[in-house]
Design a protein around this nucleic acid. Sequence first.
DNA 1: TGTAGCATGTAAGCCGTTACATGATTGA
DNA 2: TCAATCATGTAACGGCTTACATGCTACA
Lengths: 188, 188
Amino acid sequence: MTTELSMTGYALLGLLVFDARTSDEGMTGYELKQRADLTLRYYWVSPAMSQIYTELDRLHGLDLVEAFETHEGKRRSRHFRVTEHGREELHRWLHTPAAEAFPVLKHPVALRLLMGALSDPETVDSWLADYLEQLERHRADLQGVRELLADRHEVRYPARVAEWGLSYYDAEREIVEKLRTEIRSELD
Amino acid sequence: MTTELSMTGYALLGLLVFDARTSDEGMTGYELKQRADLTLRYYWVSPAMSQIYTELDRLHGLDLVEAFETHEGKRRSRHFRVTEHGREELHRWLHTPAAEAFPVLKHPVALRLLMGALSDPETVDSWLADYLEQLERHRADLQGVRELLADRHEVRYPARVAEWGLSYYDAEREIVEKLRTEIRSELD
DNA sequence: TGTAGCATGTAAGCCGTTACATGATTGA
DNA sequence: TCAATCATGTAACGGCTTACATGCTACA
């Protein structure tokens, strides 16, 4: 019997394995959320807090993580650490050929552009301009993450993924700028 | 009162508006699915049949589309056509500044790559190789769609979105090939 | 004659979000 | 003292998928 987890489950398990290399205290759900905001967010999703706690409970039920409660003062927190079984399960998953692993893109801007003819060039151009602004912000955030990782060998894979993301943002900027020029030329 | 629809709702409405420019018979749910497979799939999702029928019922309930049943022989089918109210609603939506319109990317390959250190370079390379293959297939499909649209003025927006998609696939191929070279260099 | 494609739907269930609810600690 | 941050959870619900169920029609 192979316990199939959700992608998000494996993602969290991965964060915990990663954490275990620099600390043995484990991580709280809260900390996992912060970590997810720095990494997962760009290539997957950053799950809601409630989702993280739910998922951690599931992982715990499957003995893929162990939990221990700590009390500093009156504040209670649960720290999670990946178990040997959890490590094995993650490895198993990583070595299982990923059936249908193609990315899903939900691109509201492209969706709107599809219906551009129902609007006017000025409006369409403003969608693209707004998108470019957001793109810059996201790019800058990710650039920050990239710099945080520096060229430390232990984090070379996260660094590569960050670079992947940056190159994606760059490609988006380029094509969107091209589209803007084209659409603005319709204004005459 | 502004009836907020789901994105998929607006997407289907858009397909129906588009259809109305070349035909006035409307479209069946089945046909909408096929159309979605040709367009929406690349920038949004292609909803399951059941989802399409559900969504059509909702749109009908809101008087955004009208339905009429036809019988050819013993086969029953429901054809849907956008109503004036539906058109207005779509226009309203298109001219509403899209709060948080940033794309969501669910990229299983990037997610795995993040954990590349838990595997070995050969395996990681094989993930990327598989991904490249799938990428080529998707690109070819989308290229087919692009050619179908030719340079007919009425479909210039869909054509632009198709080109956007193609450039995205190209950027993916480029970065993934770069990553492969880098990872294979670890094999020595 | 049988299979692929046309055509429509219901039911169960997963994954994830938002809203709600609670409370401790740190620091301005 | 008040806001921000740390910290954990429950409830309701939306969107979407898969599995299931049904039946017609064209054509090889």
